[in-house]
Design a protein around this nucleic acid. Structure first.
Ligand code: FES
Ligand code: FES
Lengths: 144, 144
DNA sequence: AAACTTGTAACTAAATTAATTACATGATAT
DNA sequence: ATATCATGTAATTAATTTAGTTACAAGTTT
């Protein structure tokens, strides 16, 4: 299974808000860029707002970032859009047989390993900011 | 979304085969330990067999490991049971608008970051063998 | 008041998971 | 050889999640 594209779209939204910072970035504008439905964007905007990453107001067109790009990491976005819960990247089978020596110990054994693996992945996300993403996009424009 | 419990169950199966190496480890035996249906176990046994981790024969009861525990990493199991495809831990939104500077660059920008994050997670799995898991289970038995 | 936007809820279709049932095929023991 | 038991595999099911769609209330502006 894959982690929801809400994460990729969340990055897209925030980057585009900044890219278009002198204009008005409405849900419809974002939706046409991402190529999806405005209601999908608005739901994501709600999550990003709740996480304190953007400012939006009912009835008023456009969203703005509340922070500098360099202060927002991909991990912040990842948490904001709620794609993976803490310690739940990997599922564990429930109700193993407790009469079995493997069954009664497997969960305690596996959990910290899974937590470490998830942590290593998340650490990478913590080390990339939206500024890095933006720089790479700008570089792509200049080269490609 | 979470990674399928096939992974955890796969680890469980292999560990229990070794734990019960002097006995006969049938799909029914495994199923009662894991607390699931024998057909679920047999499907997983098929994957583990296809990956060369176990030996099983139609009509003959019991599965055996083909390698030492210390030669099987959690990454091997993870690949065997097919829970996450290469470079597909994270979904990317399809068809962004190419007229948009963010839209036409976002995928190339994000993909390597996602690949790095996935790689960091998988590296942890490569560094843990089933022997480590077994030792921890045995330790759990002796202490707890 | 009209036009536009955000915020939300309800509904849909597609995909995935895990469980279940059923049965063909292969091996073995009496 | 035939009854028994195991693996291999397919079809079905219910539950969950995703992403999209439609609809509309509530807020803002002109
Ligand atoms: S129940 Fe999971 S190994 Fe025995
Ligand atoms: S940012 Fe994804 S389409 Fe413009």
């Amino acid at each position: 299974m894959s982690i929801s594209s809400r994460f990729a779209v969340g990055i897209h939204i925030l980057t585009l808000i900044e890219f278009n910072k002198d204009g008005i970035t409405s849900s419809e504008f974002l939706a046409s860029s991402v190529n999806t439905n405005p209601a999908v964007i608005r739901k994501l905007m709600g999550m990003l707002k709740k996480a304190g990453l953007i400012e939006v107001h009912p009835g008023i067109a456009g969203a703005k970032l509340t922070m500098k790009l360099s202060d927002i990491t991909l991990f912040d976005v990842y948490k904001a859009v709620n794609v993976v819960q803490d310690k739940e990247l990997f599922s564990i089978h429930e109700n193993p047989q407790l009469n079995c020596p493997v069954g009664r110990n497997i969960q305690n054994t596996i959990e910290p390993i899974f937590a470490t693996a998830q942590g290593a992945m998340e650490k990478v996300l913590k080390n990339v900011t939206l500024e890095d993403v933006m720089n790479d996009i700008v570089a792509g424009e200049n080269i490609g």
